[in-house]
Amino acid sequence: MNSPDKDGAVNPRRELNLDTAISGVALLAALGLLVITLQDKRAQVNIAAADAPADLPLILLGLWALLSAIIFIRSLMPGQYEDIAPLGLMRQAPIVLILTVTILAMLSFGYLIPVSVGLALVLWLLGERRPLAFGLTWLVLGPGLWALLHHILQIRLPSLLSGGLL
């Protein structure tokens, strides 16, 4: 954010904002974890040739680093957030609480049920009230993602039933 001076004019000096700090830390963490992970895979000639479901965490880590870099670079551009109202702590705290409860609930209830319920609550708190957009987002990111990971990619997820049905 640009800060106004005494006369109300905008100071061209760019202050460090929360998005820059958080995305910078996330980028450094992702790059550090990528370096550590790739050092273990150094013995393989080509990482893509040994592509397997067990490599999914490495792929997700790469995506984490890429998205963090994009958010970090965008946060450094002037005028990015001037028309967006800041999301206050009172709106952020329930989302963090819901995500924490969702993660902890996965230990007892598997992946599908906690993620579906948690995602619906987060969408509601973020202000999504349009039925079609809410339903499609929930369906694709909740049960749809579970079906993709569990049935198509055959990645083992925490399950409610011991047979892996849910």
Rank of each mutant, 00 (worst) to 15 (best):
L63W: 07
L63N: 03
L63H: 03
W64I: 04
W64G: 01
W64T: 04
A65E: 00
A65T: 00
A65G: 00
L66G: 05
L66H: 04
L67V: 15
L67I: 14
S68G: 14
S68D: 06
I70V: 15
I70K: 06
I71A: 13
I71E: 03
I71L: 13
I73M: 09
R74T: 11
R74G: 11
R74Q: 14
S75P: 08
S75M: 11
M77A: 15
P78F: 08
P78D: 12
G79M: 10
Q80V: 09
Y81Q: 09
Y81V: 08
Y81E: 05
Y81L: 09
Y81T: 04
E82M: 08
E82T: 14
E82H: 06
D83L: 11
D83H: 11
D83N: 05
D83C: 01
I84Y: 08
I84R: 13
I84D: 08
I84S: 10
P86E: 02
L87G: 07
L87W: 02
L87S: 13
G88K: 05
G88D: 08
L89G: 12
M90A: 14
M90D: 11
M90V: 08
R91C: 04
R91D: 15
R91H: 13
Q92W: 12
Q92P: 05
Q92C: 09
A93V: 14
A93I: 15
A93M: 14
A93T: 14
P94S: 11
P94T: 07
P94R: 07
P94A: 10
P94H: 12
P94K: 12
I95F: 06
I95V: 15
V96R: 08
L97H: 05
L97D: 06
L97S: 12
L97N: 04
T100C: 06
T100V: 08
T100Q: 02
V101W: 02
T102M: 09
I103W: 10
L104P: 01
A105Q: 03
M106D: 03
L107W: 11
L107E: 11
L107I: 11
S108H: 15
S108C: 09
S108A: 14
F109S: 04
G110F: 01
G110T: 00
G110L: 00
G110D: 01
Y111G: 00
Y111L: 00
Y111E: 00
L112C: 01
L112S: 01
I113A: 03
I113Q: 03
I113V: 12
P114R: 00
V115H: 06
S116Q: 03
S116L: 05
S116W: 07
S116T: 05
V117M: 03
V117D: 02
V117F: 00
G118C: 06
G118K: 04
L119D: 00
L119H: 02
L119A: 05
A120H: 04
L121N: 10
L123D: 10
L123P: 09
L123T: 13
W124R: 15
W124S: 13
L126N: 09
L126H: 08
G127V: 02
E128S: 02
E128H: 01
E128W: 00
R129S: 13
R129W: 03
P131H: 08
L132Y: 11
L132A: 15
L132W: 12
A133R: 10
F134D: 05
F134I: 07
G135S: 15
L136Y: 13
L136A: 08
L136K: 06
T137F: 07
T137L: 12
T137K: 10
W138M: 05
W138D: 00
W138K: 07
L139P: 06
L139M: 13
L139W: 07
V140S: 12
G142R: 02
